[in-house]
Amino acid sequence: MNEIVSSALMIIGAAFALLASAGVVRMPDLFTRMQAATKASTLGISCVVFAVAVHFGELGITTRALATIIFIFLTAPVAAHMIARAAYFVGVPLWEQTIIDELHGHYDRRTHKLARPDDPFAVLPMTVDLRRLTGQTVLVGYGRVGRRIGEALIANDVSIVVVEDNREIVEKLRESDVPAVFGNASEPGVLIQAHIHRASMLVIATPDTAEARRMAGIARAVNPRIEIVVRTHTEEDAAALERANAGKAFLGEHELAHTMTRYVLDRYGGAVTHS
């Protein structure tokens, strides 16, 4: 029985080690190679060493085997972290299809220290309930347009996270218990802070179309199923945004005309029924 268990463990371990090596050869960049190498080799060698313990079934050997396994489990992550960190500083290129480098700009290249954003408004407070950050609507911009959307959404019990590049607005929103992040949403880190990966909708109420397209690109990359609503100013921009699959575009003048027309027709309709 022991023989069968140890043989199975040995084969499983060798298979994991083989997978690790295949990953190291096939993966596209250093960091993806490392995640194949470290995880699979740790598990693989631990299985093989455990097989030795089962095979001999003596206390002294089992103890040594367990010590080896514990040693591998403690040292492999440390070594992997150190080499990945060094590689990042050296500037080993990421895979060309990498979407987001979340560390970008956060490391001080000279002191090699992780520079946390000093601004408490640039990160969501830890006290925000995770349920409010799941399936939420991320609202970019809380100006004339954004504020009206935001207030209506809050009134309808839709959980929202606001991204705004005006500190005072962010401060006020936090005081009234609305999760808000300070920063420019066309930077990946800011949208990630707003938990875009868990959001169901992104509403872009800022006027700059080029930035809006960048935001939509980041959101789509992180969360492919997200619905995006964009504010635009010209018909060309609206067409370009919808062509670029950047979401549903709303044109200020069109919506104004639409609402005014409806009002006028309503008045006529009202007049007809009253007479």
Partner: peptide
């Protein structure tokens, strides 16, 4: 890059450890 080679070297030595462990069973030598 050099880090790639370091990762490969690390994997090689850990594989060597695995081979010795398997050899311990094959040779009945703990």
């Amino acid at each position: 890059s050099l880090p790639d080679r370091v990762v490969a070297l690390d994997l090689i030595s850990i594989l060597a450890a695995g081979i010795t462990a398997v050899y311990a069973i094959a040779a009945e030598q703990p």
